[in-house]
Design a protein around this nucleic acid. Structure first.
Lengths: 348, 348
DNA sequence: TTTTAACACGAAAACGTTTTCGTGATATAT
DNA sequence: ATATATCACGAAAACGTTTTCGTGTTAAAA
């Protein structure tokens, strides 16, 4: 079990100084051709690679970006990661992940853990609990220490940093307009509580679409699901709530749900109540994941282009990291990713 | 934009030496109470945290583990990651990810990138291309440099290292036995080409289950799908192949598929051919993902306990990393995770 | 022959820690 | 008063690099 070889060892073996070895390997003109050849050959033989940690320390740059997300077992987030990893790797960066598990404290701990030199910058989407508590001190502290942050999807407008968001409002609006156009007269909304930023925006899109078409939004048609029911464990409760919605509003002929799970549950409940999709009820979801594609009937959804979001976020961050110590003119961008309506079988 | 504060700065500010500061912060008995108080107060005020990179360099230990997987947008792998992250975090480690994207060269490059000091050990599942090429030099090189590896799910028996695998053989066998027990007389298999280790094992489980019940395995009932068709883009081709299978073997009344996608496609095709599930055909898949749960009818599957695999792998790796420089008696474990058959609507 | 220039290399600092060892000052024991 | 022990702290090395600067040797120019 030989340890990795170091410059020092090569130097000793070849009876030259460490500096000479280092320079020879970087092909410096200071070193004679002879010596270079010798050193390079030796290094190749022993498969020398500079130690990343030492380089990071010396350069005060780790070439690693940290990504903090609420949950990884989630099609949307894993697609974002893939996007981040793709451009990060292409541009010579590694990716290190932290999961907040939707918890404020885990988010803070994870950030502190990474902020102490392990990474050069953050890409993150904030946890529900953080959104609820509205405590953003950890973001501000991190940034005040010169570590850039790019937020995606779930962002908070109070914080000055780069952001990549999906056009939740218009995505939702277009979806609902599609339902209206398809002759739905009574469109229900299944959404989250308002503190979830994206849920709120999608709700607003729903409302405006209705209003634009002179339809009075009715609160009885707007079901706001509690977080607790999000998780796979509480499917029954979720379905019960939706069933209640259908039963109290028999006239429902369209459903817009702010995520896949809600949409699928709606379809399931509708089917159970003897309603045909899309003939009796048309359904549109948000987030274009595997479930939508493979559901029966397959689900019409608003695609968020998650991977693209990840790519943009990574580019934004790395651009900032590599910008020549600039004019200090702290300007932050917000990239808005347009949504697409992917039409499938759940709508006419 | 103040940089992170260092020991040196604190020392200068308080007019003591760096050593004193370091010791004071670690509550050394060498330092007087007075000085400790002063230093600790100052450090707290400025929110001092030791620089991880410097610590890593000094200790020759990064407290970071690298995980290399073929694909992250995949329920199974993301669940494994969650498991790894869970115990890693609990035990004071970070997780850094690399995606091979099923490519041999990306796997090698990613490993080399991380092996140069960035991490203490690997957890990985090898790419299809690597399995096909059977070129494992990068694993051996990494290990010969003293960096431990834990392989999970897709492992290679030639390599001596810790492994966490699912009991593919028995999982498959039990699934097929379930079908037999449920009175299926003609059970089809939808699997991968044989070089995919887990696919091969599951195929063997299928065969042995049949043989144990005096049923002659027929190659015409065993459909081996080419990789290319795995991806979401080639769903049509995949379905076409399956449709062919059904059409040439009208007597099929049971299907065992080695993954979710194959199973779902089988259900879709069966439905298209006017077959009812589970009355005409019963279907069992492998990998308990979201799709199985939310499919209609929901799919009976062999659960792999992905998160548990991740947890075990992480524990194995960290145990090895933290074992007091031991008896050098290089002994490697292979943990076998038992599968569970999750019965849902696609079987009787 | 002397001065200068080019060449080839080494010493040392720096990145931010921790830790070993040494040392001056004070307090205690003889 | 002297020897010794304790205390409180600092210097320096080490982790593995890169880079600046200095320097001795040789070759070219005066």
């Amino acid at each position: 079990m030989k340890r990795k070889i170091t410059l020092k060892q090569i130097a000793k073996e070849l009876d030259v100084s460490i500096s000479t070895v280092s320079k020879a390997l970087r092909n410096s003109v200071e070193i004679s051709e002879d010596t270079k050849q010798k050193v390079q050959a030796f290094a190749k033989l022993y498969n020398y690679r500079p130690n990343n940690i030492a380089l990071s320390l010396k350069n005060r740059k780790t070439n690693t970006i940290g990504i903090i997300i609420p949950e990884i077992v989630h099609h949307f987030f894993s697609k974002v990661i893939r996007g981040v990893e793709l451009v990060a790797n292409k541009r010579g960066y590694n990716v290190i992940i932290g999961l907040s598990n939707e918890s404020f404290s885990k988010e803070v701990i994870n950030m502190e853990m990474l902020a102490n030199g392990s990474i050069d910058g953050f890409i993150l989407s904030i946890s529900k609990e953080t959104q609820q508590m509205q405590d953003y001190h950890h973001f501000n502290e991190t940034m005040s220490q010169g570590m850039p942050i790019v937020m995606f999807d779930r962002v908070v407008s109070d914080i000055k940093c780069d952001k990549v968001i999906v056009d939740d409002f218009n995505g939702a609006k277009k979806a609902v307009e599609k339902l209206i156009q398809n002759n739905c007269k009574s469109i229900a909304l299944i959404t989250t509580k308002d503190y979830v930023s994206v849920g709120k925006l999608r709700t607003q899109g729903y409302i405006e679409a209705l209003e634009d078409h002179k339809i009075m939004p009715q609160s009885s048609l707007m079901l706001k699901i509690d977080d607790q029911l999000d998780s796979e464990e509480h499917l029954d409760a979720l379905e019960a709530e939706i069933e209640q919605l259908f039963k109290s509003n028999k006239e429902i002929d369209g459903v817009f749900a702010v995520n896949e799970l809600y949409a699928l549950s709606a379809m399931k409940v509708a089917r159970k109540l003897g309603l045909d999709i899309p003939n009796d009820v048309q359904v549109i979801g948000f987030t274009d994941g595997v479930l939508s594609k493979h559901a029966t009937p397959s689900l019409t959804t608003v695609s968020q282009h998650a991977q693209h979001m990840g790519e943009r976020a990574a580019d934004l961050l790395i651009d900032k990291l590599e910008r020549e110590y600039d004019v200090e003119e702290e300007e932050f961008q917000t990239v808005i990713i347009a949504t697409d309506l992917v039409e499938r079988e759940s709508t006419n």
